[in-house]
């Protein structure tokens, strides 16, 4: 099975590059696909991926729950609107997983609709103890994308088989970056062991002003070893911003030009030297734009970061 899926993976990769080349030769893509192509996007704060020096916008977009809308066309279009707002505000990284139901298909639909394949920094995962290659072929088909920028071993599932698989794809030039993920502070020691022993480009962990355990060992280690850090659950699945809603922002927030708690939290995260990119998820285009705006203007210094965590800690 593995070899067949490998071939499917390679074949669809080359078919899609051929398609890309044909589109390029033939000029612009179809009219409906030009929604964001050629659009001028604002400058946003970028962070470097240490292993290559490539810079990416400091806020990304998650897709857990929010993009799992099945075949509901109205909701699919709403997700495409979220993606459109995200790209228009300067965003690039979108994260998904085979575990997220129809999210991968919905992202593929949005990329089609927006003609945004060149814009996206595609980030997905392998999450199986079975045939990783088979799952990756399916993931690629759902995104309908040439190749991925980053693939991660989701929650370390099948790490012994899946990590070598990802490194192999990278060595063959079919993948640009390799990472692992965890969340909710689970298996942090195992993740750090992988960070220590493998040549990872990325690690994805939960981090926000309340869940700060990673600050102690994991983030410094990532920084020292040149591993880029993606932050999941920046709003604790939404409960953090929900609880803070209605509370006045602290006075010092004005210095950072933030208009919401969501932006303050994102700035807190982006300002950490080890953090590359938090990936908040949303169902609302306005929230996607608001979150991206956190990657503009000033960032808090260490002292202000502590103040942010303290204020939020008191209010929660």
């Amino acid at each position: 099975m593995s070899e067949i899926d490998r071939r499917t993976f390679l074949k669809s990769a080359s078919a899609l590059s051929a398609l890309g080349a044909a589109t390029a030769l033939g000029g612009a893509g179809p009219l409906w696909a030009q929604t964001i192509a050629g659009q001028k996007r604002p400058d946003v704060i970028r962070k470097a991926i240490a292993s290559t020096g490539e810079e990416i916008p400091a806020v990304g977009l998650g897709s857990w729950i929010t993009f799992n809308v099945g075949n509901d066309m109205e909701l699919r279009d709403q997700c495409a609107d979220v993606m459109s707002a995200f790209f228009s505000a300067g965003g690039r990284m979108i994260d998904s997983s085979p575990m997220y139901g129809s999210s991968q298909d919905v992202i593929g639909y949005g990329l089609d609709k927006l003609g945004a394949r060149d814009q996206v920094f595609s980030t997905d995962k392998v999450w199986t103890s079975g045939d990783g290659m088979e799952q990756l072929a399916q993931t690629q088909e759902r995104w309908n994308i040439k190749s991925f920028d980053l693939l991660q071993v989701h929650n370390l599932v099948g790490i012994n088989e899946n990590l070598p698989l990802l490194f192999k794809l990278k060595d063959e030039g079919l993948l640009r970056y390799v990472g692992v993920t965890t969340s909710h502070g689970r298996r942090t020691e195992d993740v750090m062991a992988v960070m220590k022993n493998e040549r990872l480009d990325f690690v994805q962990v939960t981090y926000n002003p309340i869940d700060r355990d990673v600050e102690e060992y994991l983030l410094p280690m990532a920084y020292d070893r040149g591993i880029a850090v993606i932050v999941n659950r920046p709003f604790r699945g939404g409960s953090l911003v929900e609880k803070l809603e209605g509370e006045p922002l602290p006075e010092f927030a004005a210095e950072l030009q933030v208009q919401s708690w969501a932006q303050l939290i994102l700035k807190y995260l982006i300002a950490h030297p080890a953090v590359t990119c938090p990936i908040p998820a949303t169902t609302k285009p306005a929230h996607a734009a608001e979150n991206m705006r956190a990657a503009t203007g000033l960032l808090p210094d260490d002292k202000m970061r502590e103040q942010i965590a303290a204020v939020i800690g008191v209010l929660i």
Partner: peptide
């Protein structure tokens, strides 16, 4: 994996 909104729709 999904929100109540998507489920009830």
């Amino acid at each position: 994996l999904f929100s109540p909104r998507v489920y009830f729709r």
